[in-house]
């Protein structure tokens, strides 16, 4: 690449995560640069979700370091609540708060974490809901919305803290096929607006279109990584070839 080295938004160095004897991550090295989209691919159980949970400290890492904007956030003295505010997270199963309307779901973080007034927070939430195309759903409860609408609300909620980095954990996996498009389009728009994204995904077509880097996780390490045309187009390891043939033929 060359040129001056810019501090990456997120950098994982030698990340290990063990659950008892079960070693999920075995030395992950990964960098996410500003404005880039990094896609994690790999079979189920390959550690994609665990990696994302470790990244924003929802899981405590067993070993290794995580740097966020150059600051080591795995340092035990770090205020984990403050760190998590800089991440936006969207989950596979949406995880909206069922006792709150779409508006209150999105306004929660600005109000409680951002210490804004109720009116300000709701104004911001309305803007975000409009941005994801759900201005008319502000007063709906999650169980009255379609999966796609719920996931778009969850994306609006994740954007409410104005995050530096968006973590997307297989955000289309729980959706009906005809609803996948609306969510992927929205993620494409966010990327176009300059958002930095780290996503676990099974959507190979979307990877090809939108990802700057694709990382293949296997055996708890990044087994292969590079631009999508290289990783997906001419995979070097048999394991990756096997994985790709499985996901593309179904």
């Amino acid at each position: 690449m060359g040129g001056a080295r810019v501090t990456p938004v997120l950098e994982l160095r030698g990340l290990h995560k063990h659950f008892g004897r079960y070693r999920v991550l075995n030395g992950i090295d990964l960098t996410v640069d500003e404005g880039k989209t990094v896609a994690l691919i790999g079979g189920s159980g390959s550690g994609k979700s665990t990696l994302l949970k470790c990244a924003n400290l929802l899981e405590q890492v067993t070993d290794g370091e995580i740097y966020f904007d150059g600051e080591e956030i795995t340092d035990p003295r770090v205020d984990t609540d403050a760190v998590r505010r800089k991440f936006g997270v969207v989950f596979q199963s949406y995880n909206l708060f069922p006792h709150m309307t779409a508006l209150r779901n999105v306004a929660l973080a600005p109000r409680v974490v951002g210490k804004r007034s109720r009116a300000e927070a709701e104004q911001r939430a309305r803007e975000l809901l409009a941005r994801v195309g759900l201005a008319d759903k502000a007063d709906s409860y999650p169980d009255r919305m379609s999966g796609g609408q719920q996931q778009r609300t969850a994306i609006a909620r994740a954007l409410a803290n104005e995050p530096r980095l968006l973590l997307l954990d297989e955000v289309t996996s729980a959706l009906d096929p005809e609803l996948v498009g609306e969510v992927l389009d929205l993620i494409g728009e966010l990327k176009a607006q300059g958002m930095t994204i780290l996503m676990a995904t099974h959507e190979m077509d979307f990877c090809r279109r939108a990802a700057d880097t694709v990382c293949f996780l296997d055996g708890g390490v990044v087994a292969e990584s590079g631009p999508p045309e290289q990783v997906l187009g001419s995979p070097s390891s048999p394991r990756l070839r096997q994985f790709l043939s499985r996901v593309t033929h179904h």
């Binding site: 949970k53 609540d81 998590r84 989950f91 708060f97 929660l108 973080a109 974490v113 909620r157």
Partner: peptide, 15 residues
């Protein structure tokens, strides 16, 4: 997963 979602927004454990 509800806790995970709330903590991911930066809410403290009490909040």
């Amino acid at each position: 997963s509800q806790r995970a979602a709330a903590r991911s927004l930066g809410l403290s454990s009490q909040q």
